[in-house]
């Protein structure tokens, strides 16, 4: 698989605040990456650096281009949906399609219209008159009609109800993603995207805490649900984090053979959210 993004030593400061602090990572073609982090972790700044929307120090290569110097070329192969509705409200839907068709060589207008035909978004309507869900549908239709190699979604479903959110990610997975397309999703609603991710990146205070494939996470991390007196024994084993569950405690371990833990309780793969909290809070005893 080819590498879509190569970033090394990427930093971005706003005054004394280091929004992104020396981040290194690689992204393989065809992966779906979840960029997870609390508010202010630097996710949006990092994504904007990838798109050339903000200055940065360090090196970023997106599909062979420098986002800072060759933003227009990057955007020919990269699609981007920002965290809030950013479509121009004064435009009619048809005008919006005309505009994208006029400036984007990889846009398929008929495909976009076909996608919109399945929604309530009429071509004659003003964007400003559409509901938030419809605006997201429209934006998604525009993006899905572009034959791009990289799709960057920055909190794309913020403020949408659960039905829209579910449909949004299902549509991306079913109709858009394939082995030549890479998707980076920044979101707080980790549980909703966890099942479609191939990789995760954890960020906090500008630093990259973890970048790992979901398969590696399943192989390296294990969650033990210890009950009764097993809680004390489990606590004695170096762990990443713990949380209270009914009648017991759940521990997350890294790099420990499941056979050793099996006598102490039920074993499972930790969810991305629980793993993130364990790593972020650092309340465990594992180095």
């Amino acid at each position: 698989m080819s590498q879509v993004i190569k970033a090394s030593g990427v930093s971005r400061s706003f005054g004394n605040v280091k929004a992104v602090d020396g981040v290194d990572f690689r992204v393989e073609s065809g992966s779906i990456i979840g960029l997870i982090g609390p508010n202010g972790a630097g996710k949006t700044t990092l994504l904007r650096a990838l798109l050339g929307l903000t200055r940065y120090r360090g090196d970023i290569d997106v599909l062979g281009y420098s986002p800072l110097r060759q933003r227009a070329q990057v955007m020919e192969q990269v699609c981007f949906i920002a965290d809030t509705a950013v479509l121009p409200r004064w435009m009619r839907v048809a005008q919006l399609l005309d505009y994208v068709a006029g400036v984007h060589p990889r846009f398929d207008r008929e495909h976009a219209q076909a996608l919109l035909a399945d929604t309530d978004v009429a071509l004659t309507r003003h964007v400003g008159n559409l509901s938030k869900g419809m605006v997201v549908q429209l934006h998604l239709a525009l993006v899905m009609a572009i034959d791009a190699r990289l799709l960057i979604l920055d909190e794309p479903t913020l403020g949408l109800d659960i039905l829209f959110r579910k449909r949004f990610f299902e549509q991306i997975l079913a109709d858009y993603h394939h082995s030549e397309r890479t998707i980076i999703i920044s979101t707080h609603q980790v549980e909703e995207v966890e099942n479609i991710l191939t990789d995760v990146m954890f960020m906090d205070r500008g630093k990259l805490l973890l970048q790992q494939s979901m398969a590696d996470i399943a192989g390296q991390y294990v969650e033990l649900h210890a009950l009764g007196e097993n809680v004390h024994k489990a606590r004695g084993i170096p762990h990443l984090g713990q949380r209270v569950i009914p009648s017991g405690v759940a521990f997350i371990y890294r790099g420990i053979q499941p056979d050793l833990l099996a006598p102490l309780g039920e074993l499972r793969t930790p969810t991305v959210a629980d793993l993130f909290v364990a790593i972020l809070t650092g309340e465990g005893t594992d180095g």
Partner: peptide, 15 residues
């Protein structure tokens, strides 16, 4: 002001 700049900048058009 209306943040549509993020949409315009998501298109392959240079500044």
């Amino acid at each position: 002001r209306d943040r549509s700049v993020l949409f315009w900048k998501s298109m392959p058009v240079s500044e």
